[in-house]
Nucleic acid binder design. Structure first.
Lengths: 224, 224
DNA sequence: TGCGTGTCTTGACAAATATCAATTTTAGTC
DNA sequence: GACTAAAATTGATATTTGTCAAGACACGCA
């Protein structure tokens, strides 16, 4: 594993508070691996043997059922994933595949659990991470239960607008069909949802979405 | 607060590993309170000032948006709720109301956070709790994204069948309109979904659901 | 540059689900 | 045990969303 990888990992909020000693101990059996695009990393129901840390590239977490498939999260560097399953030592709930060439560090789950008991700072950070993940999923479930598809798109666009910080426009950083799947709809529905937002000034061109008047979008959600 | 309350609380997986000293310290400012049915305990976006522990009764966590409302979880004794928001000291994502007369112990969030830093066993247990909550929400989001409403009902019934352990029948322990809202559909749709399962042998009578042949239900989900 | 593959969009249609209104059933109260 | 109010069901209809098929567009690669 590269020194740079180690540095980048240690700088993650999840690990940055750890005693260096515990950190090196946890990573002693970890290793980095490069994967081509479109490779399945693991399947739901597999055991969670490694905490994954994405260093470069993009990874999609998705779920499968009855032939269908839904994107649950899109992971970007540098961040860890499947912490919950590692903690609980339980089967994975999601599958993962690389969306582009990716470099991933794999940390044995047993070492993560050990470190977690040894280092209170790590325990705090893991809690934070899990709590945030929980809240993210609550948000998704909320959106799915009480909004229709074009409202979910509005919600997504407004969130991205804040996250990306680029005034008046949003870059869609995944294929639209992946975004559709993430938002719980078909690509066709997403296409139509975008069109329904033209009335609010939204213009789409490729992966660029122009949002001249966020207020008008927000009005479509009309909740407190 | 009753001694019995203290005993029951300490017996929760979340707290059972804690040093008694830390436990009493955490509960020194806690207090129990009785609430009538149908009382709103807190609103989403409120600050999470107290970790709640339900001792008796039933509580529904729900989300609101654009006039609509969706049940996100149904809490039964003895269990804690809104741990994630307390940990992160962030606004609540859900509202709560009692579904029946309820007795709730309120523990100041600051004391929870302190105990969390002081007691590694508690930290581990809190992680467990959050990780389970996360996985629960992932399950809900999965179900909503890739199943249609009667499949979600099937999924619910099969899960309850296992949890309740009563062979061949399931007791619906909330009003059907609440169950409908929990499953992300209208009461009318739930009623029709039940009817569509008659073909698989399911019979509903009030809050009793007879499921003579779980296999036939499972076949409707047809995933691995 | 041109070819080929896959994504995105559009239209027509079908299926799923919500909404509205009316009725039956249930549960709670005096 | 009758009365009331809420919940559950049912039917008719509207809306939303998915499916299928075709064409437009974009991208990678020879």
């Amino acid at each position: 594993m590269r020194d740079q990888d180690l540095n980048d990992i240690q700088r993650l909020p999840l690990f940055s508070g750890m005693a260096t000693e515990h950190f090196s101990q946890m990573l002693r059996a970890a290793y980095a691996q490069d994967f081509p695009a479109q490779l399945q990393l693991f399947r739901q129901d597999d055991r969670a043997d490694f905490l994954h840390v994405l260093m470069e590239g993009t990874v999609a977490l998705f779920a499968q059922s009855g032939g269908r498939e839904a994107t649950m999260a899109i992971i970007r560097p540098v961040s860890s994933f499947i912490l919950a399953a590692c903690m609980l030592d339980q089967p994975l709930l999601m599958s993962a595949r690389t969306m582009s060439r990716s470099r991933i560090v794999l940390i044995p789950a047993t070492d993560v659990r050990k470190a977690f008991r040894a280092d209170p700072e790590f325990a705090v950070a893991a809690n934070r991470q899990l709590a945030m993940g929980f809240r993210d999923m609550v948000g998704q479930a909320k959106s799915l239960k009480l909004r229709k598809s074009n409202e979910r798109l509005v919600d997504y666009l407004l969130t991205e607008l804040e996250v990306q910080g680029t005034a008046g426009r949003v870059l869609i950083s995944a294929e639209k069909r992946v975004l559709a799947s993430f938002l719980g709809m078909t690509p066709e529905s997403l296409s139509r949802a975008f069109k329904s937002l033209e009335a609010a000034g939204v213009r789409v061109s490729g992966s660029q979405v122009a949002i001249p008047d966020p207020q008008r979008l927000r009005a479509l959600l009309d909740d407190a």
